[in-house]
Amino acid sequence: MSQNRKESEDTPDISRRSFLKGVGIASIGVAVGSGITSEGVEGHSASEVLGPNKNKFSLSINGKDISVEAEPRQTLAEILRDHLQMTGTKTACERGACGACTVVMNGNTVPSCMTLAVDAIGAELETIEGLEKEGELHPIQQSFVDHDALQCGFCTPGMIMSCKNLLDQNPSPNLEEIKLAVSGNLCRCGTYPKVFEAVSALKNKGE
């Protein structure tokens, strides 16, 4: 999932390292100090301790600011699914192993089951619900349908987010790059060959 991510330390993006660090610190009850929240916490200073009770804050999801109320321990996946009824994002392992909960955060794919909602404050989030515009499927969604890159469909939203992000960053990926981009997305139906086809087809169109 993370292979197409920009890893440079000097970008404001969350690198894999700082992401893990953020989770580690926040999970023991301190939501700040990871270098993430200091970027753009609305109404909260970097030193303010959030929780343990619910806090009001807003998240930028698919270009809209959405106000939520959550405890610091609540994950982004939980907030999306249970509070905002955005159930397109799935969870299937709750520990970042399967990729079903993949969303895009500041241009990087992240497992939303391993991302605390408070750690997404100030970040630009994209979920599967944001891809379709005015009834038109995003080209990657259409390509998944056209190539039958889905069976039971439970891994599909996460798989699509990984592929979408890959194409955003690398419009002409080769097979190896496609495989790497979805290497964190498990599909038990084994639909991978068609996923590779669906992404490759867009690459050819772009050229």
Binding site: Q85, G88, T89, L137, V145, D146, D148, G153, P157, I160
Partner: peptide, 21 residues
């Protein structure tokens, strides 16, 4: 033939038991 429920699945609108609230 592409799936008639392909769009529902590709947009995350398909409702699974897991999604019932």
């Amino acid at each position: 033939v592409t799936r008639i429920d392909g769009k529902a699945k590709a947009t995350g609108k398909a409702k699974y038991t897991f999604d019932i609230q």
